[in-house]
């Protein structure tokens, strides 16, 4: 038990530091808040048209680096659900919810909490509570996920 679990925590910390450094670069260099839902959503609804190239290049980086790192990393599975209804419902909820709340785990969570934003903290409490209740309901009560 003590051989496998802490390794995940260490990788979590290392990955977190990389994520935060990415956010720091985006902020200090470009003056942008690194919120994934805002970056993607601005492309989808047209509100971010004036900075479209910056957004697209950012997302190419997000997509590409795992491809570069994968051969060097330990074997990796994402264990995603193969239930079509679950995937579609989840995607719609994440898409609509993050845009109505104006942020997700990276924008409200990482970038908001680190500047002691009340909005970021409140959003984070609510999406973690809703996520926890959803897992309880759909895993332990309904047995769907």
């Amino acid at each position: 038990m003590f051989e496998s679990i802490p390794v995940d925590w260490i990788w979590g910390l290392v990955g977190g530091l990389l994520i935060g450094t990415g956010g720091a670069v985006f902020l200090l260099a470009n003056g942008r808040v690194m919120g994934a839902s805002g970056i993607i959503g601005g492309l989808v609804d047209g509100s971010g048209r004036s900075s479209a190239m910056e957004r697209i290049v950012f997302l190419i980086g997000v997509f590409l680096l795992p491809i570069v790192l994968k051969p060097l990393y330990r074997p990796f599975e994402t264990h995603a659900s193969e239930n079509l209804a679950v995937l579609v419902a989840a995607g719609l909820l994440v898409g609509i919810g993050t845009r109505i709340a104006n942020g997700c785990t990276s924008g409200h969570g990482v970038c908001g909490i680190s500047r002691l934003s009340l909005r970021g903290m409140v959003a984070t409490v609510f999406y973690i509570m809703a996520g926890g209740l959803t897992v309880v309901l759909f895993r332990h009560i309904l047995g769907v996920i």
């Binding site: 719609l92 909820l93 109505i100 984070t124 609510f126 509570m129 809703a130 959803t134 759909f138």
Partner: peptide, 13 residues
């Protein structure tokens, strides 16, 4: 409301 919807989808998938 947005965060609750997002959290539900996050937990689901």
């Amino acid at each position: 409301l947005g965060s609750v919807l997002f959290g539900a989808g996050w937990g689901l998938a």
